[in-house]
């Protein structure tokens, strides 16, 4: 059974995927160790609240932290600096919680919950993400609500 769809630069918004599927974004080789890259995805693929007709795209920052061998996917939009730059932030931890710091004004956001440490009223969307057979995949349709 095919449970993934490969998306590339010619991704079309018509692509059919089923909620719960994992879509492949890039290969592990495309990631930068202990740093981030950014993927552009049709919004309806990854977000339950977006429809095909809306023709929206989302930018998702993907970080690979080698030490704990984990990938994290999180909105690339910095709600405080108001620019698509989160993937250029430095990753690390605060009290053992993995985090990324905004490259603009240096606020820290949890990579697990997306919540801003300094201003908890701001939260970045987080997405489920994994590495499977050297492929980096984001889960279709469901937003990661691990914060609950």
């Amino acid at each position: 059974m095919q449970d993934t769809q490969t998306l590339s630069s010619n991704t079309t918004s018509e692509m059919k995927v089923i909620a719960g599927d994992w879509i492949t974004v890039c290969t592990k080789n495309d990631l930068v160790e202990n740093s981030g890259v950014c993927a552009l995805l049709p919004a309806h693929l990854v977000r339950g609240d977006a429809k095909i007709e809306d023709n929206l795209e989302v930018q998702i920052a993907i970080f690979y932290i080698k030490q704990i061998n984990k990938v994290f996917a999180i909105s690339n939009y910095d709600p405080i600096g108001k620019a698509n730059v989160m993937y250029r932030g430095i990753v690390g931890s605060i009290s053992d919680e993995p985090m990324v710091s905004s490259p603009l004004y240096k606020q820290h956001f949890s990579l697990e919950t997306g919540i801003c440490f300094e201003k908890p009223e701001y939260m970045l969307r987080t997405y489920l993400c994994r590495i499977q057979d050297n492929l980096v995949q984001v889960k279709v349709g469901s937003i990661n609500h691990s914060s609950q």
Binding site: L7, S8, S9, T11, V25, C26, D30, L31, V32, V37, C38, A39, L40, L41, E57, Q59, I62, Y77, A83, N84
Partner: peptide, 16 residues
């Protein structure tokens, strides 16, 4: 490799 906005697309950031 790092000098691109998107790892899977040649598009540019439409917010700029």
């Amino acid at each position: 490799k790092r000098f691109r906005q998107f790892v899977n697309s040649d598009k540019t950031d439409s917010n700029i």
